[in-house]
């Protein structure tokens, strides 16, 4: 047992030392820490998507002029979604988009969202829509998590 523990300690320490050394000298080194909570926002800006916050989303839902797309898997959409939202899981985009395409003009306002700041399906869906020629895409980083927190979880 003592031999197992010392062997495991050697493996762990060596892994830590080599990993540290590699990330100090490797050409593809990455920051030791990074604010992944801002991943969605920063990537959206470079992908031609506009960020909207909860208050804007409330207005968009009320107005009904914006098509809202839920980028999460269908099961999560089924468990609850923003009022009036349509399910368009990013991984099923190629199969489902043709059903929606006749409804959408190039400048039709489209809102995309997923679970929250920690997911990026909305970003990927927004990029896919942008690639199809849509120019008025809004991304709600707070997603369904922020909506349920604010609205008390009403689907």
């Amino acid at each position: 047992m003592r031999r197992s523990a010392s062997g495991a300690a050697v493996v762990l320490l060596t892994g830590l030392l080599v990993g540290t050394a590699a990330n100090l000298v490797a050409p593809r080194r990455i920051p030791w820490t990074q604010d992944w909570t801002q991943h969605l926002t920063s990537q959206a800006a470079t992908s031609g998507l506009r960020i909207v916050e909860l208050a804007d989303v409330r207005n968009l839902v009320r107005d009904g002029a914006t098509l809202i797309f839920d980028a999460r898997p269908n099961a999560e959409y089924g468990a609850g979604h923003l009022p009036g939202a349509l399910s368009l899981p990013v991984d099923d985009f190629d199969a489902l988009y043709p059903q929606f395409a006749p409804l959408l003009g190039p400048s039709t306002p489209l809102l995309v969202y997923c679970s929250g700041e920690e997911c990026d399906e909305s970003l990927l869906l927004g990029r896919q829509l942008h690639a199809q020629g849509h120019t008025n895409i809004l991304l709600f980083p707070g997603g369904y998590g922020a909506w349920t927190t604010a609205e008390g979880g009403a689907p």
Partner: peptide, 11 residues
């Protein structure tokens, strides 16, 4: 996340 990405592969 970054620490895991740095150390897990070497481990």
């Amino acid at each position: 996340i970054n620490a895991l990405a740095i150390y897990l592969p070497w481990l």
